[in-house]
Design a protein around this nucleic acid. Structure first.
Length: 231
DNA sequence: GTCTTAATAT
DNA sequence: TATATTAAGA
């Protein structure tokens, strides 16, 4: 199968950029029809997208690198595993929707993936959700916003407001996420503890994020939440 | 009833 | 491997 190496062609160089991976930005082709009017100029410039001067909420995006999906965007869940026939196909078609940490991690916006349209004809089973970077970002933002105390599955699901995402989904992910956090807490210096000594001072960690803390996300989530609460 | 954790299944 | 499911305890 000739997977869309296209994006790789354009992004092969950009593939190394963590930022782009983290946000899993789709390719220009995919992005354009979806949120053309929502692309901030800076982001558009970065991707070489022709943006028609649209009224864009200025200061909505502080930095182009932090540009994220609009709050109203419905994250669709990649679902698969339709019926019982869960053949272990060697085809990578399924994995395509799985590009969790891959370079082209921006494929999350799968067509016909809205939880509703998921059941092609039947089988309302349990579509495995793919925790794409976007989804995970949303999850993390919700968790951090709620705090260690209030970050319970129910609240997280509500805050995330992702269609098709269930409490069980979040609980499962939360479980894994907490394990991950503990591991990090255990070895803040890194998973692979270097030899006995460090060549030079080892204090690169601790970003002391005071300004980098993307309050953007939280604000968006808050807004969403309040909007819903108002109902 | 919900949350957390662990074990287990897919 | 990643995610889901289940069960037991709080």
């Amino acid at each position: 199968m000739k997977d869309d190496d296209d994006d790789g062609g354009a992004g092969s160089g950009a593939c190394g950029r963590v930022l782009e991976w983290e946000h899993g930005l789709p390719t220009a082709e995919e992005l354009t029809p979806v949120s053309h009017p929502l692309i901030p100029p800076a982001l558009a410039a970065a991707f070489g997208i022709d943006v028609p001067r649209t009224a864009f909420p200025s200061s909505a995006f502080d930095s182009p690198a932090l540009a994220r999906k609009p709050p109203n965007t419905r994250l669709s869940l990649g679902c698969y595993g339709e019926d019982d026939d869960e053949k272990e196909e060697e085809g990578k078609s399924e994995v395509a929707a799985y590009t969790t940490g891959a370079c082209g991690g921006g494929k999350s916006e799968d067509a016909a993936s809205a939880s509703g349209a998921c059941r092609g004809g039947r089988a309302e089973k349990k579509a495995r959700i793919a925790w794409t970077p976007e989804l995970h970002n949303r999850f993390v933002a919700a968790v951090e916003h709620l705090g260690d105390k209030g970050a319970v599955p129910k609240a997280i699901v509500r805050l995330m407001n992702v269609e098709g995402l269930t409490r069980e989904n979040v609980a499962s992910h939360l479980q894994k996420y907490r394990i991950y956090l503990k591991q990090q807490a255990r070895s803040p210096a890194g998973p692979q503890p270097p030899p006995a000594y460090s060549p030079s001072d080892s204090r690169p960690q601790q970003p002391s994020d005071t300004s980098t803390r993307s309050t953007c996300d939280i604000e968006k989530l808050e807004r969403d939440k309040e909007a819903r609460k108002d109902k």
